[in-house]
Structures are given as structure tokens and as C-alpha cells.
């Protein structure tokens, strides 16, 4: 029965190939995209949660826990 379904869908192999190919392209794209980023930019982005326009340190939190 499964074989019938398989053979009745025209070009079923296409779906498998298309999906893996698309994944490969997106994945490679993401890697290239990430590698092309400049270090200064990455550092800036990585530190974004630590600068929210208010006080930023978690040290205060740690200290306050153990006062």
C-alpha cells in the first residue's frame, strides 16, 4: 500500500531532495552570514542585554543575596 502511494505521487523524490538542498543552502547561508560579522559588532551585540538604559550589573544582585 505504501508503495502504491509512493509511486502515485509524481516526483516524490523531489520533496526529499528539495528539502535537504534548501536546508543546506539556509545552513550555509547562516554560517557565511555569521562569519562575515565583524568582531567589534559581535562584541557589541553580545553585550546588549547588559546595557538596557538602567543599571546593568548583576553584581549588585549577587551581593544583595548574600548580605
Amino acid at each position: 500500500m505504501i508503495k502504491n502511494v509512493l509511486s502515485d505521487i509524481g516526483g516524490v523524490g523531489l520533496y526529499g531532495i528539495a528539502s535537504v538542498l534548501l536546508f543546506f543552502l539556509v545552513f550555509s547561508g547562516a554560517i557565511v552570514f555569521a562569519l562575515l560579522k565583524k568582531k567589534s559588532f559581535l562584541n557589541y551585540m553580545g553585550a546588549l542585554p547588559l546595557s538596557d538604559g538602567t543599571e546593568t550589573d548583576s553584581k549588585k544582585q549577587t551581593d544583595s543575596l548574600h548580605e
Partner: peptide, 24 residues
């Protein structure tokens, strides 16, 4: 990062993490 008081280990990796994850 907020609790550890330090930036994320690799922002590059986070970009790949995001796109690969949602696509797969």
C-alpha cells in the same frame, strides 16, 4: 548573560543556532 554579568559566549553561534533551528 544578565545573571552571569557577562556577554553571551558566541554571538556568531547564536546566529547559526537561530537560523538552523527554526529551519529544521
Amino acid at each position: 548573560p544578565k545573571a552571569a554579568g557577562r556577554p553571551v559566549f558566541s554571538y556568531r553561534l547564536s546566529i547559526i543556532h537561530f537560523w538552523a533551528l527554526i529551519f529544521i
